[in-house]
Computed example of a mutant assay.
Amino acid sequence: MKTPTEAGRRVIRSLLEDGPATAPELADRLEMTAAGIRRHLDTLTADGIVESGERPAFGPAPTRGRGRPPRIYSISENGRDLFEQSYDDLAVSLLRFLRESGGDEAVTTFADRRAEEMERRYLPLLDEKSNMPTRVQALADALAEDGYAASVTETQLPVAGLGTLQICQHNCPVAHVAAEFPQLCEAEATVFSRLLGANVTRLATIAHGDGICTAVVSATELSSRKPVERISS
């Protein structure tokens, strides 16, 4: 795999932080010409860093008009590997040893403590926010600083009882580890619920093969802390 140019890395970063997009959308985001963005996309696709299809990896397909549907570009698994996932093999080996010596309970304890450290660092950033939208945005900003390329969108999923705010994580520094140890994802979601004071429902995770990690935040705030809800796949 060739090292991307500076412009190529801008394209990768945009796909990570802002999600899948068509070539014209990327050109608008990055203020590039149509010819320039297509040249970079062709190179990144040939190198296996970017992939394309007629619909995004996650979410509804775009409304089709006349003519050929536009290609939607998204970051590939190889592209994610460029963003600091080189320690995965060591982490997996350590967690396997922990599971063999202490069972699944030991792995869960580790995942909970890791998530609690995240909670400790994020809590001051959310405490000063007075309403749910600003707390959700503050959480997404904190996750982005930690390499999760997170953003907030309004969900269009017709799931009864769920709110409209959705946290999207376009990158996961521990995706390969969490694929074998889902306790990491579950502990993070529980902490999201406590930080926001609302039920959080996981809809998708990169670790389970989805294009992005998504979590919908309930519009109803909790009166006390309670475990996160999860939709089984």
Rank of each mutant, 00 (worst) to 15 (best):
P4Q: 14
G163A: 12
V136W: 03
L222T: 11
H40N: 14
E84L: 11
F58K: 06
F58V: 11
E186W: 07
A219Q: 08
A175Y: 05
A21L: 09
Y87A: 14
G161S: 10
D88N: 10
L98D: 01
A142Y: 02
K226M: 07
A207P: 00
C213R: 03
Y73W: 15
D42K: 15
E117D: 12
E54A: 15
I12T: 07
I37Y: 02
A138C: 08
A140V: 02
E17M: 09
A61V: 00
M132K: 05
N131K: 02
A215F: 14
G36D: 12
R96L: 01
V159Q: 04
R202W: 00
T43E: 13
E17C: 09
P70I: 13
L162M: 15
A160Y: 06
E54H: 14
R121G: 12
A57F: 05
G8F: 08
Y122T: 14
L143W: 02
L44N: 04
L44Y: 03
C168N: 09
L44K: 05
I75W: 01
R194Y: 07
A91M: 12
G103K: 14
A198C: 12
R80Y: 11
Q156W: 05
A219C: 05
D104L: 06
A61Y: 10
G59A: 13
A219D: 07
A178N: 03
P69F: 12
T33Q: 02
